[in-house]
Design a protein around this nucleic acid. Sequence first.
RNA 1: GCCCGGAUGGUGGAAUUGGUAGACACGCAGGACUUAAAAUCCUGUGGGCAGUAAUGCCUGUAUGGGUUCAAGUCCCAUUCCGGGCACCA
Length: 888
Amino acid sequence: MYYNFHDIEKKWQKYWEDNKTFKTPDDFSNPKKCYILDMFPYPSGAGLHVGHPEGYTATDIISRYKRMKGFNVLHPMGWDAFGLPAEQYAIQTGTHPAITTKENCDTFRRQIKELGLSYDWDREINTTDPKYFKWTQWIFIQLFNTWFDEDLQKGRPVSELPVPEDIIKSGEAAVREYVDSRRLAYYDNAMVWWCPDCRIVCSNEEVLFDGSHEKCGNPVEKKNLKQWMLRIPLYAERLLKGIDGLDWPEGIKEMQRNWIGRSTGAEVDFRLDGLEESLRVFTTRPDTLFGATYMVIAPEHPLTRKITTKSHRESVDNYIKAASLKSDLDRTDLAKEKTGVFTGRYAINPVNREKIPVWVADYVLTGYGTGAIMAVPAHDNRDFEFAEKFNIPVICILDPDITDPEQKKKITEGREAWTGDGRYINSADTNTGIDINGLNMEAGIARMTQWLESENLGSAKVNYKLRDWLFSRQRYWGEPFPVIHWEDGEISVMDEKDLPLELPELEKYLPGDSGESPLANAGGWLEVRDKNGRKGRRETNTMPQWAGSCWYYLRFIDPHNDRQIFDPEKEKYWMPVDIYIGGAEHAVLHLLYSRFWHKVLYDLGIVSTDEPYRKLFNQGMILAYAYENETGARIAADMVTERGGKFYHTETGTEVKQIIAKMSKSLKNVVNPDDVVLKYGADSLRLYEMFMGPLEVTKPWDEKGVKGVFNFLTRVFRFFTENANISTGSDEDPEILKKLHQTIKKVETDIENLRFNTAISAMMIFLNLATKKGKVNSETAGIFARILSPFAPHLGEELWSMFGNGESIAYQPWPEVNEEYLREEVYEYPVSFNGKLRFRIELPLSMDKEEIIEKVVSDERAKKWLETGTLTNVVVVPKRIINIVLKN
RNA sequence: GCCCGGAUGGUGGAAUUGGUAGACACGCAGGACUUAAAAUCCUGUGGGCAGUAAUGCCUGUAUGGGUUCAAGUCCCAUUCCGGGCACCA
């Protein structure tokens, strides 16, 4: 019989749709639940690419498998549909982004349905749907109305914020200012990255290290704009601690830890000679205070101008101006030379009361720590480089733990920086009474911190790299902020009952070039008046794309609820997400932001878990073959032909090299899933995506591989649809039975461990045996159809119904492994001599060690090797190996 | 520079976590079927040496060393490739 995958797949897709086979019941009586989530896509105009089905197939296999295991499975899909491309298209053509978005979603939905993925389509969500973003706005209001209680390490409603007496006395405006300064969401001037090409504000994360915009590649500039910010650093400690308990890939966890960037040290106050103020610094090495020979203050530090003496004013002003014009690229370490100027001011080193110069230099950043440092050139590479350039003394105060006398000498003489451990020298002062000489680094830091605290000169301090999250964009196609700016300066959020605030219709979507959002042209939409006649203007910024994706997993739980964000009972049942699969490109930002929002919602009692995603898995990227000539120039794939395993340019005939590269339009090596489905069917596409290799690795697409799995499915179909191959009796070949149960077991553990490639290989091995034997009984056939069905669901259903079963295979119980069939009596031992395999011998597993040795040593084949030396030992590992150790 | 991964046949990849390296698949070669081709099926396939042959031996998991009865797997050093971070004091 001919494997007509096209008809089979259409038939079952229709069946699943008509019968709503995968609709998830709101029935919480089943204690076994599993929430299996994909990172929902941005529906681009280009349609699905083959990277999408990789993760989707993986979650689909798990979902189908879990259903067969009796779990109540939540497996939804939706669209992260706000974003630039639709808006860019609107600017060019005048088409409303909602129209483009709808078209793209329709394409994506059609393509996904053609892959036979078992989503509950009744739960489909779209971030651009006002019914959805109503709740995104609602969460923003919660953030606005929350402050972080440092003592309890917990977010709390601002209504519970204790306001100091003196502030209450100063009047309403002061109270408002005080409260606003503690909200998790706040509105403030911020130096932000501005992309003149996209006319959009970018977050730090969207600016590449070379100073270009991640989205368009053009250079970005700095601009000072009023922006919405979220105080994510307040949750830094919670976000960091939470990582430990997560079943996530270690690499991703490490990336999040690095991003949060916790570092412990101390803040120390340095008195400034001739001024009232002192200069506070953060250091991770308070132990090196005796080596501090100068200080550095960042150009943007509020004290910089103030501490500068008259004679140095001009040079410092010039320096500050120059620094402000520099891009961040120029300020990073890629710019070879460090720069800086002396302020003319001296500070007093608290440990020995010596005067040290204060410099201004842009290698110190305003945003981190206190924006000023004490510089210890002997024990910090950056300070060393700076001191060398400006001839500042380098005083070694730590005798390094190294043996190389040459290097040791260099370090102690201040000709090289040493950042490792050692014993302190020159680190005592009789006037101030501190002495850490002879201690090692750990003890030195502890002693010095203690001393600073006791003398009131400083205190232990923890700092994080994580910065406030810039949460607004000057775009049209995003969630409007439910915010009103009143004429008297008050900023308020809308009443929850008035949500959603929908986007106004506009004639032009082009943003202004001064950093204004297109919404600034929205006319009447902008104007608001309260019941007392006070005038207000709506916020014209919109939220970034992260907003909608930060919490979508919660809405899937109860997507049509218009009274609540979700029903708390349902949330309690389904959360947390049991497995979350998607690309590693979201390792830091999406996952960190999402965890942050979740923790706030947890603190407010809205969600029941502290973390949203229990297990995370990243699928690897799918690459494609590409070609280059001997000069390294890339050749488009349609210009290359293959002959005898070599590749040639179709026009010039010269040989070209096959390489592996990302799929791109210019290389003409983009694989469209629609084409694959048309040619080989959805089941083949699914199977190939899983068979290519481990889910997490980057791997190249090869159409020949698709043919391989297509062959397998064809052979499955032909074997099981041939009546002569299926016996009706209950007798089964013991070899078939054993292999069958091995296969069930292998497929089961492989699915649990997301090793789909080897699960498929196990099924291939089974089919090879069945084909060889030429016959299996109907029970075996039914079992095979069931274990195949999560991978190739259309074929699974087809076989199942052909075997005369009425209902869908989707909820049939997963076959039980019968250990009885797996038991083995004998084992073919490999026998090696001094670790080299020489022959094999079949022995009963019940045989004890002595007998085994005797049997092996007396074997005819062993003679030859035993003569080569004297027997000293025989290692017998039951069910593994026998190794005979000989000595000469 | 720092932090994570990784390197196994012609190719994608297996290897029970220290115990038969190369499962499964692709490709290739030979054969069957066919007027022929495609499709399909069967056989072989890491490299080398010897043999008509069954087979036997040597060698082999990026490189060099080490631990062990035994190393693709563990340890040390090196090279290359991928990802992330980047003056965070």
